[in-house]
Nucleic acid binder design. Structure first.
Lengths: 173, 173
DNA sequence: ACCTGAACACCGTTCAAGT
DNA sequence: ACCTGAACACCGTTCAAGT
């Protein structure tokens, strides 16, 4: 009586370790090996790399989503936006290759990561619009620009504080 | 009587096309195929992907090097730095994956791309120091920071003008 | 239901063999 | 000298076969 839920857990544990060691492009075969499971079993649980990543990052996406909701109610719209973007940057810097994975997912509606990443982008859009309406952030910045910028900063490996500082200088007026 | 120089040219032509189409991580086998040459011949001319990329980018590196020398003599040190960094950004945006390749090369002395990339970094360092000495650019910025930032901006796909604008806001005081 | 692993079509890289 | 392509050790992905 194989326990599918337990198998799934083994796969996610192995994936967490190997993605932490070698980035989001790590070998799926090696994940299956470390989980002590056949390669077919990995595919049975996760149809592709993006689906596995989505499951791996689920908690992080939810946390960021919650933070956006909270910050939307905060009194300083510009600070709320910049705080959230800094948290996005540090989240995207969790794993090597993650900024790339997110950027690709945003450009591919059929990616299993698309829904989660799209929600992030929507959240960013709400925070951005609020800051722009009060005139605290340049009106010519699009959500796409802001997210690409922040992922680019995360990609280039600046510390979170630095990235936040940079984003502030870039977006505010 | 096979002409090695001609073969090399065929390989570089094929590489230019395929790297333009599919980025710096494109298949080396396919490059050999398009060049009408055996895979062993590709390896005989270029021991690995980075060596091929270095040959492909040689003219661009030389041009940037020349621009740095010129700009070092220009009257406005901050403008010279920002102009050069913008040109680096647009150069790095020539091929998909190129910012990644450059960043990796800078972190690996044994890479065939290391020498060229290192020279770029040195040139950036001279321009940066000059701007800092006049107090036009923040003193806490290192060459590594500046280059990583610019490559990150190139990676995230902003237009050249935008990237230049961003770099200016980030570095100047 | 759930899992396995051989099979397929690809890689990058090396190297004996051909001209 | 220069080139070739089989060979090796890896991939991602699928799917018939096992329990």
């Amino acid at each position: 009586m194989p326990d599918a839920a337990a198998t799934r857990g083994l796969l996610l544990d192995a994936a967490r370790e190997l993605v932490a060691e070698h980035g989001t492009a790590t070998s799926l075969r090696e994940i299956a090996r470390r989980a002590g499971v056949g390669i077919g079993t990995l595919y049975r649980h996760f149809p592709n790399r993006e689906a596995l990543l989505d499951a791996l990052l689920h908690a992080n996406f939810e946390r960021l989503q919650g933070r956006a909701a909270t910050l939307l109610g905060s009194p300083d719209p510009a600070d709320a936006l910049l705080t959230w973007l800094a948290e996005l940057a540090s989240g995207a810097a969790t794993y090597d290759g993650l900024p790339e994975s997110i950027m690709s997912a945003l450009a591919d509606e059929s990616s299993p990561l698309y829904a989660s990443c799209s929600q992030m982008k929507t959240a960013a859009g709400l925070l951005l619009r609020r800051a722009q309406e009060v005139g605290l952030v340049r009106a010519d910045v699009t959500v796409g620009d802001a997210v690409a910028l922040v992922l680019g900063l995360a990609w280039s490996g600046g510390r979170a504080g630095e990235a936040s500082d940079l984003a502030a200088r870039l977006l505010t007026r």
